[in-house]
Amino acid sequence: MEIKNCSLTDVAEILSLYEAARNLQIQREMVVWPSFENAFIENEIREERQWKIVDGSTIACNWAITFADREIWGNKDKNDAIYIHRICTNPNLRGNRYIDKIVAWAIAYAKQLGKRYVRLDTLGNNTKLIAHYTSAGFDFLGIVELTDTLTLPAHYQKEPKCCLFEIDLQNRNS
């Protein structure tokens, strides 16, 4: 199992994983991700912001990162964090705690880049995801109401309540 950047040949598989995630979100009556355009994913790949955990020849899990997230984090966004978005697990491999591997990778990557924080968010008051992310080492900072969502993907415009999570690398014991 290894973590590496996604490539342009992964786009169809990534979109398939997103479709499976949307189906699960609908089934669980959660906030549903929009359908993402190929060009959107391709751009993230070209910018080396799409990552994957590969098990053999299968993408077990993928996610995107950003280095700025002012619309969500407001004044806390000071070029000192990496932001994780759209964690998506292969439906045949759910339950393997890939979040732990992502967190370990993100901490090492953030340190390598001289960043202080690893951050992520999720929409709505999803108590299962709150427990999932805190069990992986994130501090739950609370729920904020987003006001500047026009440049964000569509699901942020439908659900303004956003849960914020953070790992502060300066205040971490390990």
Score class of each variant (00 low, 15 high):
residue 127 T to K: 13
residue 92 N to K: 12
residue 87 I to C: 10
residue 105 W to I: 05
residue 80 D to S: 08
residue 109 Y to H: 12
residue 112 Q to T: 10
residue 97 R to F: 04
residue 112 Q to P: 03
residue 163 C to Y: 06
residue 126 N to A: 09
residue 122 T to F: 01
residue 106 A to Q: 03
residue 124 G to C: 10
residue 101 K to Q: 15
residue 59 I to Y: 13
residue 103 V to L: 06
residue 98 Y to L: 03
residue 162 C to V: 07
residue 131 A to W: 04
residue 96 N to V: 11
residue 134 T to H: 06
residue 81 A to C: 03
residue 92 N to L: 15
residue 133 Y to L: 12
residue 64 A to M: 14
residue 73 W to N: 08
residue 122 T to E: 00
residue 92 N to H: 14
residue 132 H to V: 07
residue 82 I to W: 07
residue 152 L to P: 05
residue 76 K to N: 08
residue 104 A to G: 05
residue 84 I to K: 09
residue 141 L to S: 10
residue 132 H to F: 13
residue 56 G to S: 04
residue 144 V to T: 11
residue 104 A to E: 15
residue 125 N to Y: 09
residue 93 L to C: 04
residue 101 K to N: 14
residue 134 T to P: 00
residue 98 Y to K: 12
residue 78 K to A: 13
residue 91 P to C: 06
residue 89 T to Q: 14
residue 132 H to T: 13
residue 119 R to V: 06
residue 114 G to K: 10
residue 61 C to V: 02
residue 146 L to M: 05
residue 62 N to K: 14
residue 64 A to T: 13
residue 114 G to Y: 08
residue 103 V to P: 02
residue 60 A to N: 07
residue 50 Q to R: 15
residue 50 Q to P: 04
residue 96 N to T: 06
residue 149 T to R: 07
residue 103 V to C: 09
residue 156 Y to A: 02
residue 75 N to W: 05
residue 77 D to N: 01
residue 71 E to Y: 10
residue 159 E to C: 08
residue 140 F to G: 04
residue 130 I to P: 05
residue 74 G to M: 09
residue 155 H to F: 06
residue 143 I to A: 00
residue 65 I to A: 06
residue 72 I to N: 00
residue 161 K to C: 11
residue 148 D to L: 09
residue 121 D to E: 10
residue 141 L to V: 13
residue 73 W to Q: 04
residue 130 I to Q: 08
residue 125 N to W: 06
residue 139 D to T: 15
residue 60 A to Y: 03
residue 82 I to N: 05
residue 51 W to R: 08
residue 59 I to A: 03
residue 114 G to C: 00
residue 64 A to D: 08
residue 86 R to F: 06
residue 60 A to F: 03
residue 62 N to S: 15
residue 99 I to Q: 06
residue 136 A to P: 10
residue 113 L to F: 03
residue 92 N to W: 04
residue 90 N to S: 05
residue 126 N to K: 07
residue 83 Y to F: 14
residue 74 G to H: 03
residue 52 K to S: 07
residue 153 P to R: 13
residue 119 R to A: 00
residue 50 Q to F: 15
residue 162 C to W: 00
residue 130 I to N: 03
residue 147 T to M: 08
residue 104 A to T: 07
